[in-house]
């Protein structure tokens, strides 16, 4: 057993190197030479200059220490975040930013989930949205100008095509603009499918079972404060999301049924979605998984109650 190899350091080192290279070859190096490691989705586009600038900032600030960017093909995870991650989404990610710890939520499907305004406000003060969030504030990125010449050399190094206008336009933008641009295209190459919620409720064509029910209105008011106020304003007079007390629904005058209210809370909106012949701009999140039926109807009851109040004044 005390073979010669333990007396010959050079031979020993060579043998050790060969031994460590076997697993390296099989699991890392050989797969790299095959196409299975280099998939690309059809809809995937390389980053634009401002998006890459945002991604650089994401790396610089170490957002990946708190946020993952990969949804696992597990039922509840897909319900929470959306379609599970596909190998072909990441072809331009150098390197990948999947992360390994979810102190904050996964961001693989955050692109387009909220309007830009939401992100600006949230980055400036996450605690204004969720008082108990531990996310640091990033408002200090505002006003820090991007450098067009730096970004040109970054685009060159990574090998993405760009236009001169695109680069010079960067001088107008700051780091917060860039970060929002990046966050908004994360996962954009994957079509949003409805989450596989256990019950996909159909339109019920019923009026609110709680209409006028004072208890329900009261609990609706609480739910509103917890889930809706930071977008629609404390009095529902509109902020990031539209005024809920006026006689417009999705930018068109004229009332809609309780159903439609129920539906929009249920499903949220996506840009271009058409509801009752009205076109949404997107940005209203879905509450299907976080509010149950009764809670959603209570909210509708509450909204109706404040609309009536508004009309009486």
């Amino acid at each position: 057993m005390t073979g010669g190899i333990y007396k010959k350091p050079v031979l020993f080192a060579i043998v050790a190197t060969v031994v460590i290279l076997i697993g390296t070859m099989v699991t890392m190096f050989i797969p790299m030479l095959t196409s299975q490691m280099h998939p690309r989705l059809e809809d995937l586009k390389p980053f634009t200059a401002i998006q890459l600038a945002g991604r650089d900032i994401y790396q610089r600030e170490g957002c990946n220490n708190c946020h993952t960017q990969t949804v696992r093909p597990l039922k509840t995870e897909v319900m929470r975040y959306g379609e599970y991650s596909k190998a072909g989404e990441f072809a331009y990610d150098r390197p990948f930013l999947w992360g390994s710890k979810r102190t904050g939520p996964d961001l693989a499907r955050v692109g387009g989930k909220y309007p830009d305004a939401w992100h600006y406000r949230h980055f400036e003060n996450p605690q204004a949205f969720f008082a108990e969030s531990n996310m640091p504030a990033y408002g200090w990125l505002k006003g820090k100008k991007l450098s067009p010449s730096d970004m040109e050399s970054h685009m060159k190094a990574i090998g993405f095509t760009y236009s001169v206008e695109e680069i010079s336009a960067l001088s107008e933008k700051d780091e917060l603009d860039a970060l929002v641009s990046y966050v908004q295209i994360i996962g954009a190459s994957v079509k949003k499918k409805p989450a596989p919620a256990a019950v996909i409720e159909e339109k019920e064509h019923v009026t609110n079972p709680f209409a006028g029910d004072l208890k329900a209105i009261e609990s609706g008011e609480k739910l509103y404060a917890a889930n809706c106020a930071f977008c629609h304003g404390p009095n529902a007079k509109g902020d990031i999301g539209p005024d809920l007390t006026d006689d417009e629904f999705l930018y068109v005058k004229g009332d809609v049924s309780d159903d439609d209210y129920f539906e929009i809370i249920n499903n949220g909106t996506a840009p271009g979605m058409v509801e009752e012949g009205r076109t949404a701009k997107g940005g209203m999140p879905s509450f299907k998984d976080s509010l149950d039926r009764n809670e959603r109807w209570s909210l509708v009851a509450y909204i109706r109650a404040i609309q009536v109040k508004g009309a009486q004044k």
Binding site: P73, L74, K75, V78, P196
Partner: peptide
Amino acid sequence: EKAYEESI
């Protein structure tokens, strides 16, 4: 993937 499809 199949395991996921099955689970839903």
